[in-house]
């Protein structure tokens, strides 16, 4: 048994080897991001290839589960982090990220950025965005809700799956969306919507999985979700419902760490994220909207997407200040029987 143990230890070490053998003569820029960004179908591989052509450096992605895990990892590592940049935080995490004191102002020209609501920040640079939307299965639902009010007051037997604001960013997004629409009346709205909610999942994946398996005809996701189904699965079955009040937006941003030893290179990368080369990669790999001009026009499927008439976005300060209280409010409204 000991021998086998030693053998499997050796196998593990071999598996771990490539992780340590990345040191080279060229400068290395380390970017912390989330997992789906670096997946083989994600933007990561193309971004790496394109950027390395111009920078004479090695671009090294380190990926964790999601944007929240990314911030947690940075907090755990503190000033000694290997990260030069963090890519994939979202607007709701910005304030917390700034409060860590780990990030440095980017100092680049961000005039190329065009995001609904006109997001501007001296530390974080937007690289893509998506409006939250209720995605529905058009084979089951013939008359989708046309407003948040419709969703809240509609037929409770038509179910929706949402995410938990305690554990996921889309869940928090919906919380803020309802708050933006209903203000102080949000608890009453949740109490009504509660009957329509089939279940509340810990993250986006579980909710969307339930939805595509047909368990619920509606799910909270992004306006851009139908583009994936149109382009990759050639189906227009799944559609986003356009809400007349407007849609809450999620903007994904990147920022530079204070402790970076490659400041110039990091700034070069941040500027690169707003360039047409980078932005062209985003829509069909990350399934989000580009935050600046792309080199080619967007694919046809994107033209068919819902265009929100109004964009909701609360300031990161407000979100950071009220998040706990609003989550409590949500819990109370949702737990009442």
């Amino acid at each position: 048994m000991r021998k086998h143990f030693a053998f499997s230890l050796a196998a593990l070490m071999l598996a771990a080897l490539p992780l340590t053998a990345t040191a080279q003569d060229k400068k290395t820029l380390t970017v912390y991001t989330y997992e789906s960004f670096v997946a083989e179908w994600g933007p990561g591989p193309k971004v790496k290839e394109t950027f390395e052509k111009t920078c004479d450096c090695t671009l090294n992605f380190v990926a964790v589960a999601d944007g929240v895990a990314l911030l947690t990892r940075l907090k755990l590592e503190g000033a000694s982090s290997d990260a030069d940049l963090a890519l994939g935080l979202d607007t709701n995490l910005i304030q917390e990220a700034k409060d860590t004191g780990l990030f440095a102002p980017h100092g680049i020209d961000t005039s190329a950025a065009k995001v609904p609501g006109g997001f501007k920040d001296d530390v974080f640079v937007p690289f893509d965005y998506g409006h939250f939307a209720v995605i529905y299965d058009s084979e089951t639902i013939k008359t989708p809700p046309s407003s948040m009010k419709d969703l809240v007051e509609g037929d409770p037997s038509q179910k929706i799956v949402i995410q938990d604001p305690r554990t996921s960013t889309p869940g928090l997004g919906l919380l803020l969306w309802v708050k933006s629409v209903y203000g102080d009346k949000a608890p009453e709205a949740w109490a009504k919507l509660k009957d329509r909610i089939l279940t509340v999942t810990p993250g986006w994946s579980e909710a969307y999985g339930l939805f595509t398996k047909g368990e619920a005809p509606m799910v909270l996701s992004y306006v851009t979700s139908p583009a994936y189904h149109m382009m990759e699965e050639k189906t227009e079955r799944y559609k986003a419902a356009k809400f007349s009040e407007g849609h809450y937006i999620q903007i994904e941003v990147s920022g530079m760490l204070k402790a970076t030893k490659n400041k110039a290179l990091a700034e070069q990368f941040l500027a690169f994220t707003l360039s047409p080369q980078f932005q062209t990669i985003i829509p069909t790999t990350n399934w989000m909207m580009p935050a600046a001009a792309t080199a080619d026009p967007l694919p046809e499927a994107f033209g068919k997407l819902v265009e929100p008439s109004k964009t909701f976005l609360m300031s990161p300060e407000d979100v950071a200040k009220n998040r706990q209280a609003w989550i409590r409010e949500w819990l109370t409204a949702m737990s009442m029987n």
């Binding site: 670096v38 994600g42 964790v64 969307y208 999985g209 990759e232």
Partner: peptide
């Protein structure tokens, strides 16, 4: 795995979740 996850350390459940997390049900 979730916290350490790095592109070089992928387990089968992690692979399943990452497919699920990008529309690939």
């Amino acid at each position: 795995v979730a916290l350490f996850g790095s592109n070089d350390l992928t387990t089968l459940p992690w692979l399943i979740y990452s497919r699920l997390g990008s529309y690939r049900t």
